[in-house]
């Protein structure tokens, strides 16, 4: 997948090494790529909010990271953002596989997937769409730079328009 190459290259260039993740079919190739690359240190989580803590600790120790998750799992992270990331101004990059949009087959993915942009806006978390191949590299690189330069979380929203969705059949 070309988007996978671009995301992994942007993470490397920006020294994003600590990769905390919860499984997702769309993100799987990126996770596998980074797991096979000793530059990255992967942490398989039990729940997304745990990753907010792990990445905050990594940042405090001087290691940049990113959280890879599904839009539904973002719902599990909210208090981590509200009472750790935002008040301490800790940068946190999220790569979100957005469910509940074009191609979705599971109604249980729809409410949170579709509310995601509004929830992010309400939490003052900047969001950027990865929905076209040519956007992936500059948007990922730029969002990571923004996060670490300003102490903000950022959300990169992986669209099914780019990835083809679960199983590649949008």
């Amino acid at each position: 997948m070309p988007w996978t190459d671009d995301v992994v290259a942007a993470f490397r260039e920006q020294e994003v090494r600590l990769i905390a993740y919860v499984a997702d079919r769309v993100l799987a190739p990126a996770i596998e790529r980074m797991a096979a690359d000793p530059y990255f240190h992967l942490v398989c989580l039990t729940r997304e909010e745990e990753g907010v803590g792990v990445l905050a600790g990594g940042y405090l120790g001087g290691m940049r990271g990113a959280l890879l998750l599904q839009s539904s799992g973002f719902g599990n992270t909210l208090n981590g953002f509200g009472s750790l990331i935002l008040p301490y101004q800790i940068p946190l990059v999220m790569l979100l596989s957005v469910r509940g949009g074009p191609g979705e087959f599971n109604v249980c993915q729809v409410p949170l997937g579709q509310a995601l942009p509004r929830v992010l806006d309400d939490m003052d978390i900047p969001r950027y769409d990865l929905d076209r191949p040519e956007a992936v590299s500059p948007v990922t690189r730029g969002a990571v730079r923004l996060a670490f330069a300003t102490g903000k979380p950022v959300a990169l929203l992986l669209s099914t328009l780019l990835t083809g969705g679960k199983g590649g059949r949008i």
Binding site: H41, G51, V52, G53, V54, G57, G61, M63, G65, L84
Partner: peptide, 18 residues
Amino acid sequence: WGAMGLTASVGLGLALAR
């Protein structure tokens, strides 16, 4: 001051980084 439950996770991330 917050993030109840995440102290262990913050410690883990810190231990991995340092």
